[in-house]
Design a protein around this nucleic acid. Structure first.
Lengths: 207, 207
DNA sequence: ACTAGAATTGTCAGTGACTGACACAATACC
DNA sequence: GGTATTGTGTCAGTCACTGACAATTCTAGT
């Protein structure tokens, strides 16, 4: 009885979120999710490669949007500005998906296994960003560093937005990038060179 | 036949690394690892909570060393300098563990499941760093941002050291922090304020 | 050396995630 | 209406992981 593929997929996701919230992730079996969605356990694993993945769908679409935004950024912009441009371009996706994302976040926070998968999804996005930055002339290490710093900054901004919805998401992102700049530009020891750094460390050891 | 606990632990780790390199992670069962170490599958899971964890031992010791170094950093240092101080203080651990770490890295890179766990270990370290930074007067979001940027920078430096052992690890870390500063301080759009940023984006849409 | 008690392991049975193979049903296309 | 394609059900099986209990070895006190 093959219904519409997408419909079954969505029913499974909905059922999973529902059961995870009621009983918790570990206490819910894949068979129970499938039963609630009106299909078999085997069908569940035909739609999702593993039990965790049922909560992480649509991530690929977001990755595609952000990396495309990085490619579309004005070529005059440096990597840091290009990332800001890209994040600002796709901020609407965060706003639209917030009703789905917010309850899911609570479930993820309650399970170690789900946190691991969530972290891995962030890593995949970071890697895709780095790849896009490479096309802008950066070396691989530079692109990795920039994308990781950018993702850390974006997470910072989105997290602040979750806790304070009274301010626009775009404004939160602007502030996050400002904070990142202030933080790393205050690097006194390194700015003056290695010699001074060593002296500071020797001083510290005497204390 | 209970031998010394630490000895069995190390035999299991060695056997696992060996088998993972020969057959790959997925193709090796926990029972096989245990048999090679002269114990039972049940004993394997008494020493390690799951199959992946056998490759990630000693991480706790490193976390403790780095966070303690953050706490010991001169109080006059800002968060960014404190992180540099801490990383520089424990760089010896990287040098000593390189013979174990390097082959392990190849195994990890060949398995999705192991990569996930590795990423999670990085996340745990980052969280511990953020916690240590909080004790230096930073807010939670600031500490999170700083620790994530710091970890990204450290990874950058260590990775460069792996690829170029002719230069000292300490020098690689110094360079990584310099690159991080240069990267985020060149944030032209944000530095001039939101208005200019919006204009840049509107211009881009016309293109 | 001897022995009680703690620590470690072996054995066994069981759950649940996940997979391959095959048959069956529903849909799309002609 | 027949046929290939696609989605699903069923079944058997592997493997990660766990609880319970017995057996074994180590450790300390005598």
């Amino acid at each position: 009885m093959p219904r519409n593929r997408e419909e079954v997929r969505k029913r499974l996701q909905w059922a999973a979120l529902e059961l995870f919230r009621e009983r918790g992730y570990e206490e819910t079996t894949a068979a129970e999710i499938a039963a609630k969605a009106g299909v078999t356990e085997r069908t569940f694993f035909r739609h999702f490669p593993d039990k965790r993945e049922v909560l992480f769908d649509g991530g690929a679409a977001f990755i595609e949007a952000v990396t495309e935004a990085v490619r579309d950024a004005p070529k005059t912009l440096g990597p840091w500005d290009a990332l800001f441009f890209a994040f600002d371009s796709v901020k609407q996706m965060f706003i639209e998906n917030r009703p789905f994302t917010e309850p899911r976040q609570r479930v993820i926070a309650s399970s170690q296994a789900l946190q691991e998968r969530a972290t891995d999804k962030t890593r995949a996005l970071t890697a895709a960003l780095a790849s896009a930055l490479c096309e802008r002339g950066l070396t691989v290490p530079q692109a990795n560093l920039a994308s990781q710093m950018g993702m850390a900054t974006l997470s910072h901004g989105v997290s602040a937005w979750f806790n304070d919805g009274s301010i626009d998401l775009g404004e939160h992102i602007v502030r996050a990038f400002q904070e990142a700049r202030d933080l790393s530009s205050s690097n006194l020891a390194i700015a003056k060179g290695t010699r001074r750094t060593q002296r500071i460390q020797e001083k510290a050891k005497l204390t």
